[in-house]
Amino acid sequence: MTEQTSQNLLEELPGDLMMWVLIISELLIFGAGLVVFLSLRISDPAGFAEAQSQLHRTGAALNTIILITSGYLAAIGLRLNLAAQRGAARLALIAAAALGVVFLIIKLAEYADKAAQGITYDTHPFFMFYYLLTGFHAAHVIAGVLVLLLVAWRDTPENIEMGAAFWHMVDLVWVLLFPVIYLLA
């Protein structure tokens, strides 16, 4: 590959290169977690299926809709900002962050329900990975909500593009995490 080709490839990439490095790193971490999770399932598929039946799929499915819609609002926020509609862009970003908070409330209710049933991380290896992967993802949601509010305040197009890209990464991870943890019986 020539230097010119490499340069063109980097120029083709939308947004900031470092944000893409972060996105790829996060995808690799969560991807490795999912591979280990399904590898462990091989030794005890019945136990994993039994443990999975304790989860609330409806709440998690609702959270998928919430994150997808939140990602849409964040992307709209960037478009509006680029069209010099700063007020509307800020509203879209704040709405995206608010949906992130709704996601967390549903997730907390799910954890509280598990705690009430006496289910902890050491109940079964399934739950260890369930808490590890969904908890790590929830931590990213908290960070994403803060980032969205920050870029709604400091609303340069570059800031919003980076903030929205982080949020889309959180969204992307969830659409891969959700079916593996909640649906693949």
Binding site: L9, L13, P14, G71, A75
Partner: peptide, 14 residues
């Protein structure tokens, strides 16, 4: 999500 939300639709190689 990659194509439309993250904008890779405009970066076909990536």
């Amino acid at each position: 999500i990659l194509s439309r939300y993250l904008g890779l639709a405009d970066a076909p190689s990536w």
